[in-house]
Amino acid sequence: MKDQFEQLKDDVIAAATKIADRDALERLRVEFLGRKGKLAELMKGMATLAGEERKLIGAVANEVKSAVEAAFVEAEKKAERGERYERGETERVDVTEPAIGSRPRGHLHPVTQVREDLEDLFTSMGFIVADGPELESDYFNFTALNIPPTHPARDMQDTFYVEGAHGSNGEVVMRTHTSSQQIRAMRAYGTPLRTVTPGRCFRNEATDVRHEHTFHQLDGMVVDKGISFAHMKGVLGIVAKHLYGPETKIRLRPKFYPFVEPGVNGEVTCYLCKGEGCRLCKKSGWLEVFGAGMIHPNVLREGGVDPGVYSGFAFGFGLTRLVMLKYGIDDIRHLEGGDLRFLNQF
């Protein structure tokens, strides 16, 4: 009888290892290990055995049973592996194949992307993002910024004048800079003040590869007691590092703007050559990206701020210029052009 058990074991294990199909394996399992299976049948025969013998054969039967069960577990694992493999083959998709009919990707304008990045930087430092009219009074755009009508500095900015703005008590212009918001911001928010105004500006000049009558700036100002030129350097240094990386330095040189004193022109280390000098920076190692200065006392006064008590600095970035530098855009006219071949690149 022991031989019969051993034989059964060998038969089952041989059969199970040959089967790769899990259904066939299950049938085989029932055939041998089921309630009415061959093993059960053999075990029925044990009832006829005497005590000692029965004990012995019982042990053999248990050993055979567990060996067979183990063989089935192993065979099942193998079968499952085979099936997975087969499904992987038959149901294979080409993972490189694009999804047909999915919605095309939309695009935010590159100026929007750079502007939002800067807005987020400044709001993280507690600045108000202010906004103001693009069609602006001559007063806020010029006169209140220490640029009276006869000032030669008006030549620096060719201006679009607008007809038919009847509600206004003076000339009305397309704002030539976002600095037009400075007086409005001081009057609206008072001191202490941290604000930036990004936006569209207009200058009456012929368009070509480098000139566009419509462009974008980001103006900013900080006013409080004890604000110094050193603070201006500190804040602008943060912006420069944010834009062009932690190694970026700034360089300031004198520049006349009527609404600041002292006034400076700001350059940052050329990000392309790291200051070595290259084509982009015209061999200087520096890129001119902003203007800044300590706010002129006349401007503070116009904003209702006492220059005897408060001081402040103001700055203006050429957003359009930042965008062109960032993406290597060689023709400014693309920016306001609406050509999808351009816009779809961002």
Partner: peptide, 11 residues
């Protein structure tokens, strides 16, 4: 629209 700073309003 907004005031023009000289007692009038802008469009």
């Amino acid at each position: 629209g907004d005031e023009d700073g000289q007692g009038g309003t802008l469009p």
